[in-house]
Design a binder for these strands. Structure first.
Lengths: 247, 247
DNA sequence: CGGGCTAGCTGCGAG
DNA sequence: CTCGCAGTTAGCCCG
């Protein structure tokens, strides 16, 4: 395909925010947060209406090179159509050298992007917060007046003995990270309120070494089974895991 | 476009591991690790030779629905071409209902996927490990015989005083996670070797509250400046950050 | 195969 | 803006 014509087609599509598909033999350079070179090969360039710019190979979900929210410019050299994507903050540049174009098409798309997702961590956390007695009898919500930023701690509560309880919910198998996070939150709350504070990690399961770490920290784990996409019976069971500390 | 013909085209491309692009009005359902419904709209389906399956809208880099390593099957109902992607472990299903097809094309692609990336954390870590005196005079490598899995601790060393030194390298702004990680590694090594152990976090910078946490843990921070994609002068500087504890 | 972690993470949301 | 984090994280690597 003729480079001049391709350039014109792309220019027009960019102004209309149409989706652009271009397949051809290209070489890609990137410099910014890291640097990379992608040797010549047949690949697909996908430009979307929000100025996302991605080079896809015929494998993997993720593009091999990409840039979001970039300014796109074109130029024609002796033997290539060069597309350049630029960005500031952080400063990044990506150049795609098309040596031949096998395919180029642009598409007017509509803008509906209203995916409805079920089973997010937030959803689970909110469900649990609705009835804390499900976690432990006598547990009641605790107002965090400027205690911690909203959204940092999943659930903050107070138990029957008047202890503060920091609750971290994970929607999948918990690992070291989850334990470290909870430990950090728990210590923070304990320090700020100067009160005895417990920490409970709630997840479908926990990896063994992470569970040991959790016990060393004096934290607690609760196993949570939940049904996804079934609003009537989302939380299947919530059982306190046997621990050597609290047996 | 005719559904029967489309089905045939897709079937053939799948067997050849050709890239498949299909644009049309569709509705998408997903159930697996989570669940989602994507209302009818014009979108692009991208199937790659490694059986990655993705629905793209005209915004964002990431697909709105996707599945990797899936088995793909097709069927035609009264008014739709239905593509189903399935997977076990974990069990997942995704159905795409195409009500109309604006565009369908398949492409034979080559398989070169040899991106050369510079500036990864591993690269920086290896560079630093080559000359530990750059971090601190008298620092020498320490053999981790079965101490910790390879790759868990970036660098393990011994200082002039005979202390063990656990070093964690981050290629970008360090945050809580980096501090928690280092703390965990440091404690682990300290316990296993029963020796005084230091922990040093090396990164271009560190967020303020994370730095406070680091100091509370008795860990150290070093600022690392590096050039990306410049093999001759990659590490520009390494300076110990002033701390209130060690001033 | 699971566990742990980096990623040019991306994308979102709160302060 | 920045910080912090979830994600159907993805993808890699090491036991």
């Amino acid at each position: 395909m003729d480079f001049e014509q391709a350039k014109e087609t792309i220019f027009h599509a960019l102004s209309k925010k149409n989706m652009i598909l271009c397949i051809g033999k290209c070489y890609v350079e990137y410099w910014g947060r890291a640097a990379s070179k992608l040797p010549k090969g047949k690949r697909m360039l996908l430009i979307k209406g929000d100025n996302s710019f991605a080079i896809h190979q015929n494998r993997l979900l993720r593009p091999v090179n990409y840039m979001m929210n970039c300014q796109i410019s074109q130029k024609i050299s002796d033997n290539a159509l060069i597309l350049e994507a630029r960005k500031t903050k952080p400063k990044e540049t990506m150049k795609v050298f098309f040596y031949s174009i096998d395919f180029l098409e642009t598409f007017k798309m509509d803008e509906s992007h209203d995916l409805r997702l079920f089973g997010s961590e937030k959803e689970l956390s909110d469900l649990l917060a609705e009835d804390l007695s499900f976690i432990e009898p006598g547990l009641k919500p605790f107002k965090r007046e400027g205690l911690l930023r909203q959204g940092v701690v999943d659930i903050l509560a107070e138990d029957k003995q008047g202890n503060l309880v920091v609750i971290e919910v994970k929607r999948r198998l918990a690992s070291y990270n989850a334990v470290s996070q909870l430990q950090r939150y728990m210590k923070q709350v304990e320090k700020m309120k100067n009160r005895k504070t417990r920490g409970i990690l709630i997840a479908p399961d926990i990896v063994k070494p992470a569970h040991e770490l959790l016990e060393n920290y004096g934290l607690e784990f609760m196993k949570l089974d939940f049904d996804i996409g079934n609003p009537e019976a989302k939380i299947k069971g919530l059982t306190k895991k046997q621990t050597t500390l609290f047996d």
